[in-house]
């Protein structure tokens, strides 16, 4: 009953330098990363940000889970690059590189494809590092210090709590259906499980709301917090450096017209051709594998 399933993306307990940084300082970096990533088109800057985030992983001791969490990038990267090669998001004229059957490949969109991918990679890695090194309760306590409403924080925390619970519930319901001779695997089995899971969820939430209210949840008076999150001088330094550095880069990028260096980066035709083969092949393989898994008897 009380078996716990690990989330693919969850906190990895530890006591590294990164773990000990105040959540608010980390939020400054994550928000700064997002702001910078979307105000620049400089691939060197974007992949530099990604590299910096990735180098934090060994310091925090989360390299392995980080790589696991970053697996989501494989379909994102392969689809993004393949689509940019056949349908560039830049103005014509396009340089024709090669033909594969009816598909015509162009190299022009590739720079922009790498920009889009760089944004996703850098923000995702930084966010994963933060999530993996911050206790959720500390995060929510810190957020409430930023005057984010208690109920909103609680909602976020509750969502994290309920994901493993519902995963388990789906497992139980699917086993029950399997034992009655229904399909036990794949998409066809998951679908009819949704109704009982949702009905159960509503019941659970109703009971929880009564239980919470019985402990004064709705109190609009002064609330205190059991978790004490310290803000040390080093946290101020990290937060301020992050804010200044990233704000400077944002300003520079915007002043230089998104700082695109596409004219400096030229992709050889043969590179575009093979990149397309690899990316499209990977993406097709992922889609195929998913379909096979979903409809396998």
């Amino acid at each position: 009953m009380s078996m716990q399933m690990a989330l693919p993306i969850a906190m990895i307990p530890g006591n590294s330098v990164i773990h000990r940084i105040n959540p608010l300082a980390k939020i400054v970096w994550v928000v700064g990363y997002i702001a910078l990533a979307f105000s620049t088109q400089n691939v060197f800057l974007l992949y530099g940000m990604a590299l910096f985030a990735f180098l934090l992983a060994p310091i925090a001791g989360v390299t392995k889970p980080l790589l696991k969490g970053a697996l989501i990038l494989v379909p994102v990267a392969s689809s993004l690059l393949a689509i940019q090669i056949i349908a560039p998001a830049v103005e014509k004229p396009w340089t024709h590189v090669a033909d594969i059957g009816v598909l015509q490949l162009y190299g022009d969109g590739l720079y922009y494809g790498f920009v889009l991918l760089g944004r996703v990679v850098s923000c995702l890695l930084m966010a994963l590092i933060m999530v993996m090194t911050t206790h959720p309760s500390d995060l929510f306590t810190s957020l409430s210090k930023l005057k984010i409403p208690y109920a909103f924080n609680f909602m976020l925390a509750m969502t994290l709590q309920l994901i493993p619970v519902f995963q388990r519930e789906v497992g139980i319901i699917m086993s029950a259906q399997k034992s009655r001779g229904m399909k036990g695997r794949g998409f066809a089995a998951v679908l009819p499980s949704f109704v009982p899971v949702f009905v159960g969820a509503i019941e659970r939430v109703q009971q929880l709301s009564i239980s919470l209210e019985s402990r004064g949840f709705g109190s609009n008076g002064f609330k205190t917090s059991y978790r004490q999150v310290k803000v040390r001088p080093s946290d101020w330094v990290i937060g301020i450096i992050g804010a200044l550095l990233l704000a400077t880069l944002v300003t520079v990028s915007i002043m230089r017209g998104l700082w695109s260096v596409s004219s400096l980066v030229v992709f050889p035709h043969i590179f575009v051709f093979w990149l397309f083969i690899v990316a499209a092949g990977t993406f097709a393989a992922i889609i195929l594998a998913t379909l096979i898994y979903a409809f396998k008897k």
Binding site: G216, F217, K223, T224, Y226, Q228
Partner: peptide, 12 residues
């Protein structure tokens, strides 16, 4: 256990 105490504003 702290939840009810937090809501009641009990000091840390």
């Amino acid at each position: 256990v702290a939840l009810g105490l937090e809501n009641a504003g009990v000091p840390y």
